[in-house]
Design a protein around this nucleic acid. Sequence first.
DNA 1: AAATAGCTCAACCGCGTACAA
DNA 2: GTTGTACGCGGTTGAGCTATT
Length: 304
Amino acid sequence: MGRSPCCEKEHTNKGAWTKEEDERLINYIKIHGEGCWRSLPKAAGLLRCGKSCRLRWINYLRPDLKRGNFTEEEDELIINLHSLLGNKWSLIAARLPGRTDNEIKNYWNTHIKRKLYSRGIDPQTHRPLNAVAAVTTTTTTPPADTITTTTSNKKMKNNSISNINQDINNNNFQLVNGTEDSNSSSGVTTDELAFHPHNHLNLDLSIGLPSNHPIAPSSSTMNPENSDKKLKQEPQVLYQWYNRNNNVATSQQLQGVCLCYGLGFQSNNQACSCKAMETGTKTVTATTTTDNHDLYRFYRPMSF
DNA sequence: AAATAGCTCAACCGCGTACAA
DNA sequence: GTTGTACGCGGTTGAGCTATT
């Protein structure tokens, strides 16, 4: 299917934005808010493509942008998130307040890649450079019906719900706030963290369900690229699976599992609007309709 | 001082997806 | 089910800046 151009190219400016264009865009969005980028340029009196306006606003003009150099904490968080998410810059950016996907992408390509190489780590695989070749020739794909788990997931499997809550209460996920993680004083070196990023960030992201498990989501819903909607439609499936596989007593069964904590968020408003942050109860609840609910977004088998 | 190389990052391009008609 | 439209994303480009020769 062919696509029509998003704008009339012959009547649009290209290249760097002028101060006047910036002001027009800012003023327009201040009054009317974001949205309907296609009609915005005309309405705002800009000879720009809507796409271009959106990009300019998101990457440069938005008032909540942090700007300035990345901190060490941000560096490490980006590395850890990239090891889990790959080049999903928008997902990574969503976890760094005030940073844009474009900014992080550029920063990755110009700084972090080099940093990882200097550590002897392959930036794509996050494995030691000298091990990458061997891994690529020896790695075998796990059977589809095998539950793939990270170290932390194995731990999670053996955890009772109270242990999960204990993790939450212990504030083990503070990287995003720029404060030191409780593991940082454990003598773990930066290189070790890079090799085993999940040890540092408690990234309980990969509850990989067997594709043919009777109560697991269908394989089509395992792909976060096109399955957000479907996953939202069957949110209880994961909880059922978790409860069943952990022999959770009925009185303690999970109603939801928020993985936002695994990414370093401490409060609801940092990443998602789920209610899983509530502590002191054995039942972890989650809303099932929020767009940002990472449980569904990251719900896929990982292969680390 | 001039030329060149390397680097950074804002902006562009094309594609995939969601959604409405 | 098909088509058209809008949006968002990731990859790429290139202008401008800085460092080096």
